[in-house]
Design a protein around this nucleic acid. Structure first.
Lengths: 323, 323
DNA sequence: ATGAAAGCGCTAACAG
DNA sequence: CTGTTAGCGCTTTCAT
């Protein structure tokens, strides 16, 4: 049983395949094809379940209708919310979002991006896998190349030095600054900052916000910097004990670490204020101060931005989403 | 600047494009093309950065090299772990996994599946969006059609009545049965089962395991069945208060609900044993008994199975993954 | 209004 | 060992 092609429809209906193509592409009127013929073709195609061949039409049009998203992982609500935001705008504009994950591996990231482009992705939304500070620098050449040839590329959560592509961020610095200031005004003096030591711009900005807020009050900044992505790692526990004698509050740059810290503190019988970026899973609530993360809104902005780039608009540069 | 095609390479090198095609497809030796020519072509292609055109080759070969995964959502560790498992096997076999989410919407699910197939997905891994019991039945016709025409389809976590496609499950019934029996042997008598009222086979099996374990000891089964996916919903709190007078233990079929229950109990100053399917986020630990879910292994099995189907093997039916 | 013809870039059978 | 030829299914220009 052969696939149903325009050719066959034409034979079946006794007209040429050009006519069929024109009608099915909605250009029937434009080419003044008789209403009768048009209707005949359309209804036949519909009831015979005709589907144009994707590869054949893409070979001509160069339009795949999908946008690629490459994330380090999808296990946290961070990515889930981003996806929700992106899909909500892309789906309505008839683009399909195709997601793939780099497993925190730069080689794999590059490989996936290339595969997505090879398959004709019309745009790319990337949350780059950034290395830890001790792991060297991000190999950004392949990304730069994309940006340079004006491929529709949107970065999320982490901008990359010297890449001319829009980057969707939240107000990391001011939010960190004011959150830490608030902790101070509540009486904390020896606030310890706990963070991954990741070269992601969002993290870096939060660290700076913390530092500046402490310095602004003449306080000393102190850090616990982690280099283990594995949530089971014991690095936090070890480093925490040194700090615990003096610490009277914590500022944490990511959600998961704050949960872990909370638990460790409780195990040690200590109750200290924690302010963190992130928000409690709606299933779990904990006694800490959350700096909300507008991930869904960021996802939507990323989706809108990639569509604009595809439509030929110029890169809007860095975009900060605050709500 | 035109795209680099085989034609151009051939012109450049003064040979025919067939030769180029053969060499680049690795059939050079088979067609006894001189080593010299082969090397010349290969090295030219490499340094010129030649990439075959995806659409053109797929138009001929009908091979897209990707496998689609459609999930209700990606926000929970459930999906994240599945993805990790799948990618770990598919990546090594040179298939790309393309993920998309149905947002718990059947229409959307069908739409996405069709788009993935339209774009040439060679296989489909599906976690179907099942309706609540009060929402009518799963519209399985489009899935059945896929299965009937032997399209490589693997279901995960939820098998569908009357569909002849492999389904990757865990040992829901026996695990539930023995977990509840254990609770009973620890002295619980009025164990309440808390669950989504979802028509997913995994959930249904867990409910049966609970019921049978209770009946086996001559105990009465009692349920709190929820119909709100939104984790912020208050339905659990409301239904819980009626039960709290008598309940002396809980069996919960999913992770998130158990967390929510735990919190509500604590708010009410009650400490009661909870056994649940799922496992604590590594960041959070809670005082309850977890029935581990082998999601990564299930993902791997799903990946392996879809590859087997693509290779032409017959459907292996239901597969239960226990570790 | 309709059809013929020339591609899009690659594959493969066949002849030389 | 290499080239010719005939597609894959669809799009689009240009005659008629």
């Amino acid at each position: 049983m052969k696939r149903l092609t325009m050719q066959r429809i034409a034979q079946q209906l006794g007209c040429s395949r050009t006519t069929v193509s024109l009608v099915l592409k909605g250009k029937g009127d434009q080419y003044r094809i008789s209403r009768q013929t048009q209707e005949k073709i359309r209804s036949f195609a519909r009831q015979a379940g005709y589907k144009p061949d994707y590869f054949a039409s893409a070979l001509n049009s160069r339009q795949s209708g999908f946008i690629a998203a490459v994330f380090p992982d999808v296990f946290e609500s961070f990515m889930g919310s981003l996806v929700r935001g992106m899909e909500s705008v892309l789906y309505d504009r008839d683009y399909t979002l195709m997601i793939s994950t780099s497993r925190f591996d730069q080689r794999r990231e590059q490989d996936l991006v290339e595969k997505m482009l090879y398959r004709g992705a019309e745009g790319l939304i990337l949350v780059p896998t950034m290395p830890f500070r001790n792991e060297g620098t991000y190999r950004n050449t392949y990304i730069r190349e994309l940006a340079d040839r004006k491929f529709p590329l949107v970065l999320v959560d982490r901008c990359i030095e010297g890449i001319d592509a829009p980057c969707i961020l939240q107000e990391d610095y001011p939010l960190a600054f004011s959150a830490v200031s608030r902790l101070i005004s509540r009486g904390c003096r020896r606030i310890v900052c706990v963070s991954f030591d990741l070269q992601a711009s969002s993290i870096e900005q939060r660290l700076l916000g913390y530092r500046d807020a402490m310095h602004a009050q003449g306080l000393t900044d102190q850090y616990i910097l982690l280099e283990e992505l594995n949530p089971e790692a014991h690095d936090l526990a070890e480093k925490l004990d040194n700090m615990l004698k003096t610490a009277d509050g914590f500022f944490v740059t990511t959600t998961g670490i704050a949960d872990k810290l909370f638990r460790l503190l409780r195990q040690r019988g200590r109750v200290l204020p924690i302010t963190r970026f992130g928000s409690a899973s709606p299933y779990m609530t904990r006694d800490m101060t959350d700096i909300p993360q507008p991930h869904v809104a960021m996802g939507m902005k990323a989706g809108e931005t990639v569509l604009k780039l595809i439509a030929g608009e110029a890169s809007p540069g860095t975009l900060r989403v605050s709500e």
